[in-house]
Design a protein around this nucleic acid. Structure first.
Lengths: 351, 351
DNA sequence: TTTATTAAGTTAAACGTTTTATCAATTTTA
DNA sequence: TAAAATTGATAAAACGTTTAACTTAATAAA
């Protein structure tokens, strides 16, 4: 990066000169409109100068004087994934309403990027950070990610976690009850679809929320005396989906339903693979996903899934962050928002 | 917004104290690693203190000293529209690579929001702004939007425009040649599809790029001696699409092709409406869109369209902005990136 | 008249960092 | 030995804004 010279902009001094008053007076006019300390004609002259020069106080100088910056960081793993623009919207719309600005940081699922961003955010002395962590590849990355959150907190920056959380909560989080959601979907497949052999697909990276989904599935199956069957799959590049599906749905095991608890994206990939294997969805095989991205309703057949309140997750995280920043104590440290089971055409329903 | 107190963070003074040196020395160690002005043991003590306290210089103080901020603004109309996350990615990935951070501002297609954002960005003294303007409802809004760009420029802030541009260029822009793209699509429908009666749908808001698309369509039609038929439609809520389609494709005019030049989103809506009217696409009616959003390839039938290089538009805008900020003069003020005609299943092809 | 009070402003310090100028101590050169 | 140069560190100013403390002049109260 080439070094850059600061562009000169209009400053309070210019306003004061034009209005023929001291800098202090100009500042008072601008900051305390109700103050009686300035006569009407003087106030008018200052405001005219502000208007004429289009003056806006430099926020860096205000910040130096002790004002907390109205800047927040939002770290997300992948803006191209349909899930995140909606979360981002919820977060940033709410932030704007509350008078904050948002620095968007797209980590591309790399912890190293997140670490770099963290340094930047500390430098900026942002008021708060919302983070939706990268898909950690392994234990070491998970640790680095945790360290990074702790580093932010140790610098006096408020942090909330989005969507993904942890069994060892180092900061508040906002998400849904993944256990309940997974339990609910499994139960629906059993009761509504009449399935007895249901396979669960989860990613190799067993982050905490994925474990929760496994647990929900397992408990639901056991509640109805059915045998849980959990399979780890490549949910990033889908390299082994085809092979696993062939074994499960064409072999002699004859599963009748597939719950891809990792994501809708993955479930849609499963629908594609089913077609290539000559399986009809949902007649031969019911497929369910998780997230309810926009695509879920477009794809053919449309996808039965768990709807996560994406916009609300972003919105709630922002509201939470605002409260943390102004040191209100949170009545509840973690917030689980309601989810919805959405029945579409990729699963059968018994009459 | 409640007033907020600044959180205390570790400062250079703390580092200096811990290392038992002056603030100046600490600063020198941190900023000029190659400098010979500090002895090895001293340097080591300082770096240890930095490490121990996890010190990062406050960027607002650096900014006050004259360093240009590494912050840019990106104003987009609607993050929920699939088009923009991709542009945003291209922009912000490139920005991060060049050492900049990006404030994302989602105007929700409201000029008033854009004006508010502009104030904020001026306050922050950002180095540059990339703006993709709101869909102006009328002439007055268009003017306000232009005024806002001029205001930024007058404050010494570099500005580029994305995707949407103008006949009166007040700043550089990045996009595609909408005239050529529209001409190309129309010509393909004529030559490849053998169509003679092709309807063009454009939005009521005739922004400049929409005019360009009209012009391209018209010229292509006239080149082959065909009659242009341009229809203004509600491309926001699609309230009159159904009615217009009924008239054109079920009436006695018998158009055989529809080019929705406004967007893919609109074209996909047209496909839906065609189905509800009992028209088969593409057998009864060919439909083409504009943008090539992700959905275009998912929808059934998949959509023939013009592919805009979304990621590259963002990336190129960022590179341009970087050059403007460092005062390199641009060899070309405006950049039109290549587009592609993409044939899919929503249009017929003669053998 | 003298003394408070009020009105309408101004001065100057502070915020955290960088950098220029300065200084003291040491080493080199004449 | 004295002068000059070098080394290693520091003091202080500057950046743009806010604000507590202060000033001056006019007015009101005693």
């Amino acid at each position: 990066m080439t070094s850059r010279k600061k562009a000169s902009t209009v400053k309070l001094e210019d306003v004061a000169k034009r209005a023929k008053v001291s800098i202090a007076t100009a500042s008072i006019v601008i900051n305390t409109p109700e103050s009686k300390r300035v006569s009407e004609p003087t106030r008018k002259r200052v405001l005219e100068a502000v208007e004429a020069l289009n003056y806006r106080p430099a926020s860096y100088a205000q910040q130096m004087r002790g004002k907390n910056p109205a800047i927040l960081g939002l770290i997300i793993p992948d803006l191209m994934n349909q899930f995140y623009p909606e979360v981002t919207c919820g977060f940033s719309d709410t932030a704007n309403q509350l008078g904050y600005n948002v620095i968007l940081l797209n980590s591309r699922n790399e912890v190293a990027q997140e670490e770099f961003f963290t340094d930047t955010l500390i430098s900026m002395r942002v008021a708060g950070v919302a983070i939706c962590g990268a898909n950690s590849e392994n234990q070491e990355e998970s640790q680095r990610e945790k360290a990074l959150v702790k580093r932010l907190i140790s610098q006096g920056i408020s942090v909330v976690r989005l969507d993904r959380y942890d069994d060892d909560p180092i900061c508040p989080y906002v998400g849904i009850d993944n256990y309940q959601a997974s339990f609910c979907m499994t139960e629906q497949l059993i009761l509504e679809g009449g399935h007895k052999k249901i396979a669960l697909f989860v990613p190799y990276q067993r982050v905490y929320i994925q474990e929760e989904r496994c647990r929900g599935y397992r408990d639901a199956m056991e509640k109805y005396g059915l045998l849980p069957s959990i399979f780890e799959t490549d949910q990033i590049h889908f390299t082994d989906i085809n092979e696993k599906m062939k074994a499960l749905f064409l072999g002699n095991q004859r599963f009748t339903a597939l719950f891809n608890a990792a994501s809708d994206i993955g479930a849609i990939e499963c629908i594609k693979q089913a077609a290539s294997l000559g399986l009809r969805v949902p007649q031969d095989l019911s497929i369910a996903g998780f997230d309810d991205i926009y695509l879920a309703n477009i794809v053919n057949p449309s996808l039965t899934t768990i709807c996560q309140p994406k916009y609300d997750i972003g919105k709630t995280a922002m509201q939470m962050l605002a409260r943390m920043i102004s040191n209100e104590d949170l009545e509840e440290k973690n917030i689980l928002l309601p989810f919805h089971y959405i029945k579409r055409n990729s699963t059968i329903a018994m009459e």
